[in-house]
Design a protein around this nucleic acid. Structure first.
Lengths: 240, 240
DNA sequence: AAGTTTGTTCCGTGACACGGAACAGCTCGG
DNA sequence: CCGAGCTGTTCCGTGTCACGGAACAAACTT
C-alpha cells in the first residue's frame, strides 16, 4: 500500500509531467483499479492534484519537502554565500550534496539568461559528470572514489569522462587545488568550476558556477568560488 | 494506512524538529505499534530518516517536493526577477502563492543578515498578516475577501490587523495602488511592501520585500517591487 | 453502428494492517 | 541493589480493508 503509493509518486520523475490514469497504471505496473483507488486517496490527502483526467504532484508534497531539515538548514546557511557568488560572477550558481553515487541539487540560482542545464533543484545527476559531483567525490574519502571508479562511468554528453584513469587524475587535481573543473561534461557549451564545502573535516556539500563556454574565464571565477565555499564552511563549522 | 502515514509526516511541521517514537505516537494519536511499523516502512522508502532513536524527514521527500510542477515552474520563472529585486534593495525578498485562506511561500532569498521572520519556504501564514498575503487577497476576487473578512482575523503580533474594517480599507488601498503594505504585522520590527503577480487577469502569486523598520523607505522600495512584479507577470503571460 | 478507448463501480477473497499484551534494555531514585 | 518507569521492539489473533478481475458507462475513432 505505502510502497505502491510511493511508486506512484515517483513515476512523476520527469519535468512537470502530468499523467492520466492508464498511463500511470502502465508506468507503475499496477492494476488500473489500484491506481485509481490510491490516486484518489492521494488526491484527498493533497499529495496529488487532479484536473479533469490528468494527475500531477500536489502542493502538500512541496510543503512537506520544504521541511526536510538537512536540506533546509543547509540551504538557509548557504543562500547568502550563493548570492555573493552570483553577484560576483552573474552566472548560474549551484549547491549540491552527495547521495550515494549521485549529486542532489539543493539550490540553483540564476539571472535572466537560463542555461540549458540538466541540473534541477531536487534532481539527481552522476557524480562524475558534474563540477559539484567531482568536488564532492574528491573529498568524500578514498573508498567512495574507488567504488565509483570501479563501475562503468555514465555520461551526459560526448565530453563526459568515461575513462577511469582520466577521472582519477581529475580527482587528484581537485584534491590538490581544492577546486573541481568540468567542461561540457554535463551539457554542451557549458563549463563549470566547483569547490567543496566542509563541516569540519568531511565535505557535506559543494557549490559551483556554470558558465557558457564562450564566457568561461577560470582564473576569474576560481577565487570567487573558493571564497564562497570557504565562507560557507566557516559558518557551518561555527553554527552547528 | 496512507492516511496514517501522511498524518505521521505532517506532525513534523515545526522547524527542523526530530521526534522519537513515543513522541510521534502521542502527537499523531496513533498506537505506538502502528507508528513503529509505518515509520519503519517510511524509512525504508526514504521518506523518513532515522538515526539512533530519532526520526526526521527524509531526503526523498525533498526530491519529490521539488518536482511539484506548479511550484517549480513559478519559482523558475520568478527567480531572475527576485534576484533583480534583491540586488536593487539588498533586503529579504519573498515569493508566495495563495492556498485557501493562507499564503504558502515558494521562495525567499536574503543576504547575510537574516531577519527574524515567521516566513519559511513551504510554510503557511495567514493572508491577513503578511504583505504577500494582502496583495493576494486584494486581487483574488471579492468573494474570497468577504469570506476572510467574515471570519475572526488571526494575528501574529500585536500590530496584526484584527479589525475587519481596517483590513477592508487596506485591501481597497492595495487594489487602487497595486501595492500592499504591512508594518510589524507579521514580525516585530519588520515592515513589508508587496505586489501581486498576474497570469492574465487573476493573481497567481505575489512578491514582497521585507525590511527592518529602521531602514523602511517605502518611496524607494515601491518602484522596485512593482517593477519586479510587472516583469514577472509579463513573462508568465507570454510563457504559458 | 460496431469497435476501442477511456474512467469508474462492484464484489468476493485473502492478505495484511491493526493494536493489545508481553518482552527487553535502559535510566532513574529509593 | 533492585524495583518502578520509561524506552523501542516483537509476537499474534482478529477483523478489515486493500486487492484485482469483471462488468459498466461514456467518449472517442473507425
Amino acid at each position: 500500500m505505502l510502497d505502491k503509493a510511493v511508486t506512484l509518486l515517483e513515476t512523476f520523475r520527469p519535468d512537470g509531467g502530468t499523467y492520466r490514469l492508464t498511463e500511470l497504471a502502465e508506468r507503475t505496473g499496477l492494476t488500473k483499479t489500484t491506481v485509481f483507488r490510491i490516486a484518489a486517496d492521494l488526491v484527498r490527502l493533497g499529495l496529488l492534484e487532479r484536473t479533469g483526467d490528468t494527475y500531477r504532484l500536489g502542493g502538500k508534497l512541496f510543503e512537506l519537502g520544504s521541511l526536510v531539515p538537512r536540506r533546509q538548514d543547509l540551504r538557509e546557511a548557504a543562500l547568502p554565500f550563493l548570492q555573493d557568488l552570483f553577484e560576483a560572477t552573474r552566472e548560474t550558481v549551484h549547491l549540491g550534496v552527495r547521495e550515494g553515487h549521485e549529486v542532489v541539487y539543493v539550490e540553483r540560482i540564476h539571472g535572466h539568461d537560463v542555461l540549458p542545464l540538466p541540473s534541477r533543484i531536487g534532481g539527481r545527476l552522476p557524480l562524475t559528470c558534474t563540477g559539484v559531483g567531482k568536488a564532492l567525490l574528491a573529498f568524500s574519502g578514498a573508498e567512495l572514489a574507488e567504488e565509483v571508479l570501479a563501475q562503468p562511468l555514465p555520461s551526459l554528453t560526448p565530453y563526459s569522462i568515461t575513462d577511469p584513469a582520466r577521472l582519477r587524475t581529475a580527482i587528484e587535481q581537485a584534491q590538490v587545488s581544492g577546486l573541481a573543473y568540468e567542461e561540457q561534461e554535463a551539457a554542451l557549451g557549458v563549463s563549470c568550476i566547483a569547490a567543496p564545502v566542509f563541516d569540519g573535516a568531511v565535505a557535506v556539500a559543494a557549490l559551483s558556477v556554470a558558465v557558457p563556454r564562450a564566457r568561461y574565464r577560470p582564473a576569474q571565477l576560481a577565487p570567487a568560488v573558493r571564497t564562497a565555499a570557504l565562507g560557507l564552511s566557516r559558518v557551518l563549522r561555527s553554527g552547528g
